[in-house]
């Protein structure tokens, strides 16, 4: 139910950018979409824009095929990959 509530909150704000939109929803839905933080009315359009930006970013990543299967090291992806062997040039080490 938490997930549903969060997604509903996103949809509600995305669909009805106006600050009164949440109050205008039928009571059970309005209760369900209560946001877990407080935003002022003038911040809601920016919030909606941010959500739209995130949706675009996620969509652009979905176009990159990742497929199935184990990727046992993806959780360590922040650490730098081992540099590929360079073809030529300075060593870059103290010289």
């Amino acid at each position: 139910m938490d997930l549903t509530r969060r997604r509903l909150a996103q949809w509600a704000v995305a669909l009805f950018a106006a600050p009164h939109a949440l109050a205008a929803l039928p009571p059970p839905v309005a209760t369900a979409v209560k946001l877990p933080f407080t935003l002022h009315p003038d911040q809601l359009p920016i919030y909606k824009k941010e959500l739209a930006g995130q949706a675009r970013e996620a969509a652009s990543l979905r176009r990159f095929p990742l497929g199935y299967g184990y990727e046992p090291d993806f959780v360590f992806s922040a650490l730098p990959a081992r540099p590929a062997r360079r073809r030529r040039g300075h060593s870059g080490t103290p010289a």
Binding site: R6, Q43, E50, Q54, A58, L66
Partner: peptide
């Protein structure tokens, strides 16, 4: 800055599957 307030709040709604896809993409 209202942009920062709204931006921090919006970040709380990124689905876990999108965050993990970004991680998997990073390795590739």
């Amino acid at each position: 800055d209202p942009t920062q307030i709204a931006g921090l709040a919006a970040g709380a709604h990124i689905p876990a599957v999108d965050y993990l896809r970004a991680f998997r993409f990073r390795r590739a």
